[in-house]
Each structure stands twice: as structure tokens, then as C-alpha cells.
Nucleic acid binder design. Structure first.
Length: 584
RNA sequence: CGGGGUGUAGCUCAGUCAGGCUAGAGCGCACGGUUCGGGACCGUGAGGUCGGCGGUUCGAAUCCGCCCACCCCGACCA
């Protein structure tokens, strides 16, 4: 359809916004009638909104199908949403993703999940079709609906429970091949976001429940984002706060160890209060934080344990790093009540004298000398606590959270902390799934080897949300030309007058013949209503046909992104319109 | 899952604290008329299980209990 008459258009614009609209972009999408909320994290996509989603998908398909240097390219297919639970049991993700998995049971008590992601299904299908290295490399993808029972959907289209994802999976003979696939997808993603008019930065990320090694997220930087990342203004280092490293300079490593001393600290249960009372910087203290840790075991079950985490008092624990250091499925912060219940002294805890408890220490705190730490007795702390002498960590690792102003580990420049939304992520998975599913191929030497995999996702609705967030003003959406539902918004004023209607209809015909798509406002509404709707809906170019203009033998053009009206001769209208759109 | 909030017409909301006649407004919608370059105006009209169930009461949108949905903060999250 290259023409839509607004008198026939199913969705209508809203003068008032549903109260629960969240971000400005979300408000505009709802007000413009492009999307309609159905349930928490579930939306209906109306005709105009769907056209944009389709345009986004076309761009993504073009970039996925583009041939790489050695001729490899994505091939599109479609996997089911209904996936037998065994698939996820086999990869262990029925456990690691248990909370977000939508499960259902059929009439024969057979269990299924609504696919939250499809590594398992792709690797199974791969296995059935590939036996030889001659078939590799392969890149398979789909654009399909995913289901995730998010504990808390939010931000309009930012965190949905049902959404569309483009997910591509690469299969290579070895790591070197994976590197090629990964780089290809990385480059393709840069092009996709560029073409969609959304600025992103690739940032180092955590692979989390996906498994695997290298991974980058493509972050759209915005105040409404839920991810935190650290950016180095000098060398360009960019990383999600979950994995961001920074320079840790020890402050007291050179001090002579002094004798341990117990002091009274009545009522001092926070690092701030303690440091202030003693007149020392927070960095001179050692903070103890307790976590309940969940590990997966061989049988597919889980077991829990408690750990004490020691970190310098001026820093916070990075739970992702902690989880990775422990090889755990989950770590859960123990609040004061839980700590007390577990028999520890909240506010005066430390690893000193704590037997048979696993202790994880940040790699900085173990270097420092003569720190202040809890005495594990109410209202008592210890001075001059030293690692090795007074306590010993079972695991020493970088588990500190990077924060604004900390120094870049590449170039020592202070980094900026920013918020962002993850638009897409690329993972080097390695052989985790191919081994679990025995997806082997025979190499040139006749050796059986697991395919080396990568996986690459883009959230389509999230991208839509970012596009609107990025391309708007007070009046409405300003679609980038390549994504606009229609090229031209043709407004007929006083269309009940035959001369206006005839002029508008004939111009519509000419525009269609010229290959342009047209949203034609043929409603009998006042000019204000029509202009405001045109601004709200955001087509790149507005063309006004009215008695006033026709009297001058003209029509009027106005770029949505600009603020100038321009009269052009009716006879030259199509050529002028094409020129305006091309230069937009 | 913890904390907070909201649920009354298609939308935005008032009315609930202090129970009382046919439950209201604006916008939208329908019809008629006047208008026509930035969300016009006049008139007429349709539209409601007051989130649900139960209770208290002569009487419940209003008080009590349970439940549900949605939103916000946190936990959580590829």
C-alpha cells in the first residue's frame, strides 16, 4: 500500500496521553496511535507503527544478507516459539533462565517453553543438516517473537515480555573463523544502527546467562537507560559497568604493619560514620558484605552457600564480577536482617577470625596495610588489619564496581559514567551449545569437532523506541526518511470543496506514480487538527493543498524537521517534493 | 519478591476523607447548523457491571475483608 487515506486509517491520534506513558518517546508512540498497550510489557502494533517495524526489519535483513569477504552471509529462516523444555534442560538454561522462562504444558503433560532466545533450537537444526567442514561457515538468522517473563517490564517498549528479535547464530570450524563472523556482525550492527538514525557505542559487556567469552553491547546513550556504562573520553574505552575495569591505586601498601588493636565504636555501623569518627578516609577501611550464592550442580539442581566479600571501604561490590569470580548462577545481597539471622554482626563484620566461611576479596584490599575493619562483635572494630596476617581470602579477584571519575585502565584518564539502553549484543559463544547438543562436524582430517558458535541479537521494538526517543520534538515524531510510515503527508484543507479534493487526489496519483508513498489527510477537519496530527505523526514532508494555495496555482511544502513553509507551483510539485525528500 | 500508588464513560480526571435522591466534567463519538491556515463554535444525543467477589448498613463509587489488574521505586534482567 503506497496510499493511506486518513479517513480510513484504523488508528487515531489521541489528544490526551494515557496516564501510564513513561518516556517522551513512549508517549508519542501511544499518542500517535502507532502502538497500543495490552498488558504489562505487551503491546499491539497499529498500522503506522507496524510499517516502521517492517522498515526496521528490512534494513536489518539487508545487513544480515550482505556478503562478507569470503562470501559468507546470513540466511534467514524461522524457528518455532513453542520449544520443548528438553532443549533448555540440555543447555542448563531451564535453571539459569528459570525466572524469565514462560512455561506451558500440553494435553499430554508435555512441557514447553515459549522461546526466550534460540541458541538451543538453532544448534539442533544445525546438527541435523551439517556434518562436514565443507558446509561451514554458516550464519543463520530469524526475525521472530521472543517471550521473557521479565520480573518487571518497564519503559514502554524498552523492556517487554513479548518482543521481536533478530537473532543470528554463526557456526565456524574454529576460533579464527568465529573471529571473522563476529567482526562481520559487529560491522553489520554498526551499519544497522547508523541507518536507523540511532547513535550507539559498542561497549564491553558481561556474557551472563548466555555463556561464552567476548561480547559487546551496542548502547544507545540516554538518561532513561537502565544500563550503566563507563566511557573513556581519551582512548575510547567503553564498557558496561558490570565488567568495566579501572585503575586501582593502592594507598597504604607501603606502610609497616602495625599491631592489631580493638577499639570501641558504639553505634557506628556504616563506613561513613566509622571513617568520620576515626578521622580517616573511607579508603582506609575494609568493608564486609555478605552474599547468598547459588551454584548449579551437575544434576541440574542448585545449591546455596553464603560468602563474605571484602572490599575497600570507598568502593562498591560489582555483583556481576563477583558472580563470575565464584562461577555462580546467582548472588544475592544479604540485608542487615539476613546477616543477623545468619549469625553475623551486621555493621561490625569482617573476615578476621571468621572460620569456615568462604571469603572473596577484591584484589586491591588485600594489598593495603593497617585498615579498619569490623571486629565481629557489636560496637567494636579493629585497627591495623592486614591480609595474610589477620585474615585470608579464599578467592582474590577484581570485584569492584567502576564509577564515574575512576581512571581508565588503558590510559589512566578519568572515565565518565553514563546510562544507556542495550540495542543489541554480539557474543562469542564458543562450543558451549555445540558440545551440549553434540553438534559436531568432520574436519579435513576426518576428526570430529564441535562447531564454534557466535550469537547476535537486536531488539526490534527497543530499536523503534530509541528511534523515536532520538528523533522528536515537542510536537511529535520526526521520522528519518528511510523509516517513516509514509514519505509524504498530504494535507487537504477544506477537502469538501470539489476543487481542493480534485487537486489533492490528482497530486496523490502523481506522487504514487513517482514511487512515493502518501498519507493523505482527506478528513473534514479544521486546519489546526490536521497540522497538529501531521506534526505528531511525523512524516518527513508535509504537502498542503488548500483553496488559498490553489488560487496561486501552488501547493505548500514543509519539511517536518524544519520550520519553513514553501510555496511551489502545482505543476512542479512532484519534482520539488522528490528534491526535498532527497535532500532531507 | 519487598515498598509505594492507582483503578469511576473510548481518553484525561473530579466525586471516596465525612455513606443518602436519576454518578459528574472536559476531550472524543453521533446528528443538525455555523465555521475553516495551528487541536473552532452553537444545539441535541448516545455512552457507566464506579476493577472483581464477599461483608457491614434502611441505603455503598464512598466503610471493612479478600482477590485481580496497571504504574512507580528497589530486587531482578541476554
Amino acid at each position: 500500500m503506497t496510499l493511506m487515506r486518513m479517513s480510513k486509517l484504523f488508528s487515531k491520534t489521541l489528544r490526551e496521553v494515557p496516564a501510564d506513558a513513561e518516556t517522551e518517546g513512549h508517549r508519542l508512540l501511544v499518542r500517535s496511535g502507532m502502538i497500543t498497550p495490552i498488558a504489562a510489557g505487551v503491546y499491539a502494533y497499529m498500522p503506522l507503527g507496524l510499517r516502521v517495524l517492517h522498515s526496521i526489519q528490512s534494513i536489518i535483513r539487508e545487513e544480515m544478507d550482505r556478503e562478507g569477504p569470503d562470501g559468507r552471509a546470513g540466511q534467514e529462516l524461522l524457528m518455532p516459539s513453542l520449544v520443548p523444555i528438553e532443549f533448555y534442560e540440555r543447555s542448563g538454561r531451564d535453571q539459569t533462565m528459570a525466572e524469565i522462562l514462560f512455561r506451558l504444558t500440553d494435553h499430554h503433560d508435555r512441557e514447553f517453553a515459549l522461546g526466550p532466545t534460540h541458541e538451543e533450537v538453532f544448534v539442533e537444526v544445525f546438527k541435523r543438516n551439517v556434518q562436514s567442514y565443507r558446509d561451514l561457515p554458516l550464519m543463520l538468522y530469524q526475525i521472530a517473537t521472543k517471550f521473557r517473563d521479565e520480573p518487571r517490564p518497564r519503559g514502554g517498549l524498552i523492556r517487554l515480555r513479548q518482543f521481536t528479535m533478530k537473532d543470528l547464530y554463526s557456526f565456524d570450524v574454529d576460533e579464527a573463523g568465529l573471529d571473522v563472523s563476529y567482526q562481520m556482525m559487529f560491522d553489520a550492527y554498526v551499519r544497522v544502527f547508523e541507518r536507523c538514525g540511532v547513535p550507539v557505542i559498542p561497549a564491553l559487556a558481561d556474557s551472563g546467562a548466555m555463556g561464552g567469552n567476548d561480547t559487546h553491547e551496542f548502547l544507545y546513550l540516554t538518561e532513561i537507560g537502565e544500563d550503566h556504562c563507563l566511557l573513556c573520553p581519551k582512548c575510547g574505552y567503553a564498557a558496561n559497568a558490570e565488567v568495566a575495569t579501572f585503575v586501582k591505586e593502592s594507598a597504604y601498601a607501603d606502610e609497616e604493619a602495625k599491631p592489631l588493636e580493638e577499639i570501641d565504636t558504639p553505634g557506628l555501623t556504616t563506613i561513613e560514620a566509622l571513617a568520620e569518627h576515626l578521622g580517616v578516609p573511607k579508603s582506609k577501611t575494609c568493608k564486609a558484605v555478605f552474599y547468598t550464592v547459588t551454584y548449579g550442580d551437575e544434576g541440574g539442581g542448585t545449591r546455596e552457600d553464603a560468602v563474605l566479600v571484602a572490599i575497600r571501604g570507598d568502593m562498591d561490590v560489582n555483583e556481576s564480577k563477583l558472580k563470575n569470580a565464584l562461577g555462580a548462577i546467582e548472588v544475592q545481597y544479604m540485608d542487615e536482617a539476613a546477616v543477623t539471622r545468619a549469625g553475623f554482626v551486621a555493621g561490625s563484620a569482617s573476615a578476621v577470625g571468621l572460620e569456615k566461611m568462604k571469603v572473596v576479596a577484591d584484589d586491591l584490599v588485600v594489598q593495603e596495610r593497617n585498615l579498619v575493619a569490623g571486629a565481629n562483635k557489636p560496637d567494636k572494630h579493629l585497627l591495623n588489619v592486614n591480609h595474610d596476617r589477620d585474615w585470608k581470602a579464599d578467592i582474590v579477584a577484581d570485584i569492584a564496581l567502576a564509577a564515574d571519575g575512576m581512571s581508565c585502565s588503558n590510559c589512566q584518564t578519568p572515565m565518565d559514567e553514563r546510562r544507556g539502553i542495550e540495542m543489541g549484543q554480539v557474543f562469542k559463544l564458543g562450543v558451549k551449545y555445540s558440545e551440549a547438543f553434540e553438534a559436531f562436524f568432520l574436519d579435513a582430517e576426518g576428526q570430529q569437532r564441535p562447531a564454534v558458535m557466535g550469537s547476535y541479537g537486536i531488539g526490534i521494538e527497543r530499536l523503534l523506541a530509541a528511534i523515536v526517543e532520538e528523533n522528536r520534538d515537542e510536537a511529535g515524531i520526526i521520522w528519518p526518511r528511510q523509516l517513516a510510515p509514509y514519505d509524504v503527508h498530504l494535507v487537504g484543507l477544506q477537502v469538501e470543496k470539489p476543487e481542493v479534493r480534485e487537486a489533492a487526489e490528482s497530486l496523490v496519483g502523481e506522487l504514487e506514480s513517482a514511487g512515493l508513498s502518501v498519507l493523505y489527510d482527506d478528513r473534514e477537519e479544521s486546519p489546526g487538527v490536521k497540522f497538529n496530527d501531521a506534526d505528531l505523526l511525523g512524516m518527513p514532508l508535509r504537502v498542503t493543498v488548500s483553496p488559498r494555495n490553489l488560487d496561486k496555482g501552488s501547493v505548500e511544502l514543509r519539511l517536518r524537521a524544519g520550520d519553513e513553509n514553501e510555496l511551489v507551483a502545482r505543476d512542479a510539485a512532484v519534482a520539488e517534493i522528490k528534491a526535498r525528500l532527497a535532500s532531507d
